[in-house]
């Protein structure tokens, strides 16, 4: 009988061991695959020579900068739309026309307008991050307990005071969920932009490793990108529990 806590680790360990044995037994010499031990060595080597850290820094820098800009725009617009009904109804068609544009479709526009580098990547990440934050914030603001609005009226709060003292605190747990989802999207979009065109960060590094036929390094970078994504998500889930405890919405709205 295997203890419950060990169960999640059985499958990955078996797969890694099987891959290692298969690679050793077949004396693997390939441009596309590598043994797990070689991948580990390549990961360690690229961590030691610093290239991994530089690439990670570039990717995270673009992702976070885009996330902050996009989330700020989404938060402001979401608050405005949630609080002012007229604005929400008047802008409905405009928003529904722009929102379905896939973020990567803007890549060529950003490319000719901003050129290669951080700026175009940040712009695309920001565009992608606006929507989840905007939609969640708008919904959260609308669902604020109506009695709190009555309190605001009874206290004769100004609209600004009502927004900052009542609406935002009440809606904050759900807004944070949106921020967490947007952070995941930011990393995905940043890596995607780097893989597609931008010679920067982890995405470009993994493309270069593929083109120079270094499968161990390529797969090592894939593993590393997975780890970064997992760590980012885990950290934000933890932060959500710490900050909001039982007020944190568990369910992810769709």
């Amino acid at each position: 009988m295997i203890a419950d806590r060990a169960k999640p680790f059985v499958l990955p360990l078996v797969l890694v061991a099987a891959a290692e044995i298969a690679a050793r037994a077949s004396h693997l010499q390939s441009d596309t695959l590598a043994a797990p031990s070689e991948i580990a060595v390549a990961l360690a080597a690229s961590a030691v020579d610093g290239s991994l850290l530089v690439a990670t820094r570039d990717t995270l820098l673009s992702a976070f900068a885009g996330l902050l800009i996009g989330a700020a725009i989404g938060l402001g617009a979401g608050l405005a739309l949630g609080l002012v009904d007229i604005l929400d109804r008047a802008l409905e068609v405009t928003i529904e026309a722009i929102r379905p544009i896939p973020s990567v479709a803007l890549l060529p526009i950003a490319l000719i307008a901003l050129g290669f580098g951080y700026r175009m990547e940040i712009a695309i990440v920001a565009f992608a991050c606006v929507w989840p934050v905007l939609i969640f914030t708008r919904a959260a603001v609308r669902d604020v307990e109506p009695r709190l609005s009555e309190v605001a009226r009874a206290l004769r709060l100004t609209p600004w005071a009502k927004a900052t003292k009542i609406v935002v605190p009440a809606a904050l747990p759900r807004i944070f969920v949106a921020f967490r989802l947007a952070a995941g999207i930011a990393l995905i979009v940043a890596v995607t932009v780097e893989i597609a065109v931008n010679p920067l960060g982890l995405g470009a590094a993994i493309m270069t490793a593929q083109q120079s036929l270094r499968p161990a390094l390529m797969l090592a970078l894939l593993v590393w990108i997975g780890l970064v994504g997992f760590a980012l998500n885990a950290a934000l889930v933890l932060a959500q529990r710490r900050l909001f405890g039982r007020f944190a919405p568990v369910e992810e709205p769709r």
């Binding site: 441009d31 596309t32 995941g184 990393l187 995905i188 890596v191 995607t192 893989i195 597609a196 982890l202 995405g203 993994i206 493309m207 490793a209 593929q210 499968p215 390529m218 797969l219 970078l221 894939l222 990108i225 997975g226 994504g229 997992f230 980012l232 998500n233």
Partner: peptide
């Protein structure tokens, strides 16, 4: 959470 686009290089290889 793995960005799906990160498997593109592997698929190309």
């Amino acid at each position: 959470p793995l960005p799906a686009s990160a498997v593109i290089p592997v698929a190309i290889a």
